[in-house]
Design a binder for these strands. Structure first.
Lengths: 216, 216
DNA sequence: CGAGCGTTTGAACAGCGTCAAAACAAGTGG
DNA sequence: CCACTTGTTTTGACGCTGTTCAAACGCTCG
């Protein structure tokens, strides 16, 4: 098991529940906080003092161009860790997509624990490597796939992740578009097209059932 | 960023030469090998038994779609480390762009060293985190920038990296296109356009001098 | 019931891709 | 030194995919 001396309790500020672990493999206590829909969790260039984990809700991490063009780097669902930096500042901002509960853990506590315990160090590396792998897949999507393929890949990834053919989409068409490098109109058109040829069924705008969408 | 002025022991003519370190901060001996232009260094899905570092030459890492569409994940210049995986298999293939000398280090030796030494573990994490950061930048480029902006960003990145306004391009227009999510014709047209409006000067097709290209 | 979003749909447009050919560079052998 | 070959780069003409702009639709919640 893990070195229990690595357990570090962070004193919570106002009204946060203590003693919530970042993950089973990162046994560091943190505090839980609530964020309203569209509330910023941290901003680009801010000091990366904390590492975060979604308890419930959903989070998007984004980068902006000066003229407002936006790229959503990733979506994070319950259980996922985000905002872990190797350097001292965040490279993107993070916002709650819907009302969400998030665990915060001091990054310093994690790196300190990593120095003591090789397993923790390995786990931190793994979290970063996992993000990297997801981004490599996404790069192929952004660089070389058509609009239909992008939307299909996106839906299949969510389905696989949720282990269900029916998926709830917490994010708007615009969020999806900014993740896939498209416009919201194009995303909407692809949904409509998939409905027309029976690939998916729209239970509501934010709830999709995959009918004939296999890996492509 | 890690130290690129690492201590390297000479260069051999052909075959392998032992006792060459991966980097100053990853003090594990490896062997040096030569690869011809367009020769594969490792393939997608192969066991990730080694970690690599460019001594001289240039390397591209690529992912393919079944129908042949290609995405170049990254270019690696002398001093840079590539092919480091957290998992057991490579997620992309790597090829020498031109005749290159590469240092190989056993991954197992590195991870073993990381277990003993927190600094090594941190360095491995940092190499991965550095790649991740580069990919986050690239994601914004692929998702939201125009063809002209992509080519300009690419040239500026190389210039910054080489610390010079004049840059040698080891890779073809097609390689650049597959990195930037464009076609080779579009890349060529952007070069021509930049020459026309005095943004760059083409000393030869593979050697560019940046004239009026600032951060955009 | 009406206001305010988010989503869908339509029509016109443009940026980039496709296809094709010409220009150019570098190497090979006569 | 020149003709020939092969591969890369450039340029042109045209068309498609996805964008832009605009309007209509349909939730959800006062």
């Amino acid at each position: 098991m893990y070195d229990q001396s690595a357990q570090i309790v962070v004193s919570p500020p106002h009204g946060c529940k203590p003693r919530v672990q970042l993950s089973s493999r990162l046994p560091i206590d943190g505090m839980e906080m609530s964020f309203a829909a569209n509330e910023e969790i941290f901003g680009e260039e801010e000091e990366a003092d904390f590492v975060y984990r979604v308890i419930d809700g959903a989070v998007r991490t984004t980068r902006l161009l000066r003229d407002g063009r936006r790229q959503i780097v990733g979506f994070y669902m319950p259980g996922e860790v985000f905002g872990l930096e190797c350097g001292d500042t965040h490279r993107f901002s993070a916002e709650a997509i819907v009302d969400s509960n998030i665990v915060l853990v001091k990054r310093a506590a994690l790196t300190r624990a990593a120095e003591q315990d090789g397993a923790v160090a390995h786990e931190l590396w793994q979290v970063t490597a996992h993000d990297l792998e997801a981004l490599q897949d996404h790069m192929l999507l952004l660089g070389r796939k058509t609009a239909a393929e992008r939307v299909a890949s996106f839906l299949m990834r969510l389905s696989k992740q949720a282990k269900s053919q029916t998926i709830e989409l917490p994010m708007s068409r615009g969020d999806i578009a900014d993740h896939l490098g498209l416009t919201l109109e194009t995303v909407s058109r692809m949904f409509s097209q998939f409905v027309r040829d029976g690939t998916i069924h729209l239970i509501s705008a934010r709830c999709v059932e995959l009918k004939r969408l296999q890996h492509a």
